[in-house]
């Protein structure tokens, strides 16, 4: 039998899950929000989403090819990035701009740093921030949801956070926010669809509920303390999609429990700070990107103490 036996290091069993399964679960979790975006903004929403995903996949394929590295398109992570970027764009965005954002996200934010798991900021958020800086007009063009059906006035509507900034909170009904009946980006408006996706991810153990709960909780408490309507704050802007899908990005959030706690509180504080004190109406993207950059530092200071180390310190 000698020579035919395979010798390898233990363990000889594996849970059977792979990276692709995780990414597929994230895509499944994004489907409710995808359906909601088509319901609210019509088939143009689907067009934006298809363009973003397709260009993200093309950018991933080509950049790996140019760098002469093994293809990673099969792990589906570029689909997640493309979809998340599309969800962060207004429905009226020119399709070429959407594609440009996708390419920036994949090539600049992800592949140039070594690909999946190596990027230090969330690629989709980088794509969004670059588009906001490059095309502020088209990135701030909001239309009312359901306008595509013809039954609702198609005039350009202000987002709830813009209304809040103008002290017009009385015009906002929190229940309509829950279902996404407000101006905003494709995937961020329908809070209930995002929550369904988030619950699915927690049940499937793809993400820990720690970051979304603490992030949203921090925004709620701070908004309340600052005399704002906390319900409107947690249901509007990009908070739901940011807290559930972007802040929980594996590569850019701390890996240990207490790190996650610090990170999520930081995200919440910066979000409220930008919303209330900054000149921008929305701060989720910047809050997450800033905390992404701080992640290695947070991880360093919240490193868990190995089993048995605590007693040793007492003994010696």
């Amino acid at each position: 039998m000698q020579g035919t036996l395979m010798v390898s290091s233990s363990p000889h069993l594996h849970c059977g899950m792979n990276t692709r399964d995780i990414m597929r679960d994230v895509i499944i979790a994004l489907i409710p929000a995808l359906i909601a975006s088509v319901w609210l903004f019509g088939f143009r929403a689907l067009a934006v989403e298809v363009v973003c995903v397709a260009s993200a996949m093309a950018a991933e394929y080509l950049s790996r090819k140019v760098m002469k590295r093994p293809q990673t398109i099969n792990d589906l992570s570029c689909v997640v990035t493309g979809l998340l970027l599309a969800f962060n764009l207004p429905v009226t965005i020119p399709l070429w701009q959407a594609a440009f954002g996708s390419v920036v996200a994949i090539v600049v934010a992800k592949q140039m740093f070594g690909g999946l798991g190596q990027n230090f900021v969330n690629p989709a958020l980088v794509g969004r921030i670059v588009l906001m800086g490059s095309f502020p007009d088209t990135m701030n063009n909001w239309i009312n949801p359901l306008a595509w059906t013809g039954k609702v006035d198609a005039v350009t509507g202000a987002t709830p956070l813009a209304l809040l900034a103008e002290d017009a909170a009385a015009q906002i009904d929190p229940l309509s926010l829950l279902f996404g009946l407000r101006g905003g980006c494709l995937g961020e408006v329908c809070a209930i669809a995002l929550l369904i996706g988030g619950i699915y991810l927690v049940i499937r153990r793809v993400i820990s509920p720690l970051i979304p709960l603490i992030y949203i909780g921090t925004v709620f408490v701070l908004a309340f303390v600052c005399g704002e309507n906390p319900l409107i704050h947690i249901l509007s802007g990009g908070l739901m999609i940011g807290a559930i899908f972007m802040a929980t990005d594996y590569a850019t959030c701390p890996i240990n429990k207490w790190g996650k706690v610090v990170y999520a509180i930081g995200c919440g504080c910066i979000t409220v700070l930008i919303r209330l004190a900054g000149s921008l109406p929305e701060g989720v993207s910047f809050a997450i990107v800033i905390m992404n950059i701080l992640t290695p530092l947070i991880e360093r200071f919240t490193r868990p103490r190995p089993f048995g180390e605590e007693r040793k310190a007492v003994r010696s």
């Binding site: 039998m1 036996l5 395979m6 010798v7 290091s9 233990s10 363990p11």
Partner: peptide, 15 residues
């Protein structure tokens, strides 16, 4: 037989 283990699959040694 392609893999032969002393012990269990988690910590066993491949022979």
């Amino acid at each position: 037989v392609r893999k032969l283990l002393f012990g269990g699959p988690m910590m066993g040694l491949a022979l």
